[in-house]
Design a protein around this nucleic acid. Structure first.
Lengths: 223, 223
DNA sequence: TAGATTGTTAATCGATTAACAATC
DNA sequence: TAGATTGTTAATCGATTAACAATC
């Protein structure tokens, strides 16, 4: 929503793929991994759609944007489709990530297991607070923001996560951009101004609650 | 997308309002508050659209779903529009929230200032870990999940936030639902199965990074 | 073969944009 | 009055769904 939750595609070089489709791809992937853990070998557009609340036609259409992954009469082999979606999303290869801001939220993100499970490696954290700089949190070293250039180069950093207070977010973003970061996941409740070549996803925790509130108050479909 | 970030409306009793519109409403609100802090009295659909990356027509159309908030020739008075959007979203009145799960993420959420700034009051936290139960975190008491019924009644709880591990999320959701919670903000990376009358919003942190990854790898519009 | 399920086309539905009269 | 800007209609654009031949 927001930064966070934009709906339609505003492509650059594009591939003709609506953002909503890519979003559902992540959900398919999550569900497929869940099915695999439960020992299920194959699934169908019907099953995936039922669990996630989509029509079977939509599931098939979404996947067909990217290729032929199914087997008529059979369905989709979970492991095949997992591999295919990972390749599409780009998470078949590891991505290095840095987190800027080691407050409550930054620390929680540093300890979040889900990132590594999904192929992301948090290789560095940054802060300006001298009492934090030099420490290790969840096995990740905390650097002063001044050392961004050096660390970004050393790790070939491509993604940055902003977990600083709102007032510091634009400055943090500028520094990330200056050092070649290509994408920013922004948890600060501000609209960042970024050059066109830098991708962004925004998550505003209060806005998520706000959206839930509206859904409850109006008995709307909540997600 | 996902639980998190669904695109189109799947209404219940509905009001004919697409979910994308409600989502943008939150962004307008955030921006208007930012403008007000900067001392700006009025704004226009053109200005709001430019900052947030929408067309002016879309801004006007979104707002027009709910009433006549602008002044032809003048624009929108920021304070008026803020009040109007808060009323629409339901955040002109306080909402009590409980957080289930006091791990890294739960603790970060308990300390997140943005919630109270937006009209949410976290009145209780729950966990099953005896070493946490009875303590206070960020001024919020941690109860054993067994006391959900009692606390929910005492505080007239309507919203719950799930910040437990994936394996425990469905059980946590079931308990919240059993005690009358009307909306769930789910941070666990699972698709919850919920009765129709309960609203939900899902935020999967790894999926957000995954979406960013795709945007970077494909040079797509990032948000 | 009968049953299941895909990939794809055409039809439907919904959301965004452009344009403009009305208003300040 | 001239300039700015809204609210709204009609036109465009895009996304979802239904249907079905092809396949296993």
């Amino acid at each position: 929503m927001d930064e966070s939750n934009e709906k339609s595609s505003t492509p650059g070089r594009d591939a003709g793929v609506p953002k909503a489709v890519v979003n559902r791809l992540s959900l398919y992937l999550r569900e497929l991994e869940h099915l695999l853990r439960g020992g299920q070998q194959t699934t169908s557009s019907h099953q995936l759609g039922r669990v996630l609340g989509f029509t079977d036609a939509q599931v098939r259409k979404d996947l067909a944007y990217f290729g032929h992954f199914g087997h008529p009469g059979i369905g989709y082999r979970c492991d095949e489709l997992v591999a295919a979606i990972r390749r599409i999303l780009g998470t078949d290869q590891p991505w290095t990530v840095a987190i800027v801001g080691v407050g409550n939220l930054g620390r929680a993100l540093l300890g979040y297991r889900g990132f590594s499970e999904r192929g992301f490696r948090i290789v560095a954290a940054f802060d300006t607070d001298a009492s934090k700089v030099g420490s290790q949190i969840e096995g990740v070293e905390v650097f002063h923001v001044d050392r961004l250039a050096e660390v970004a180069r050393a790790h070939r950093l491509r993604l940055g996560v902003i977990a600083v207070p709102a007032a510091a977010a634009q400055h943090a973003a500028d520094q990330l951009v200056a050092h070649g970061i290509e994408g920013i996941l922004n948890f600060a409740p501000v609209t960042l101004s970024l050059p066109d070549h830098v991708r962004r996803v925004g998550v505003d925790l209060a806005i998520e609650l706000e959206q839930l509130t509206f859904a409850v108050a109006n008995r709307l479909g909540g997600e």
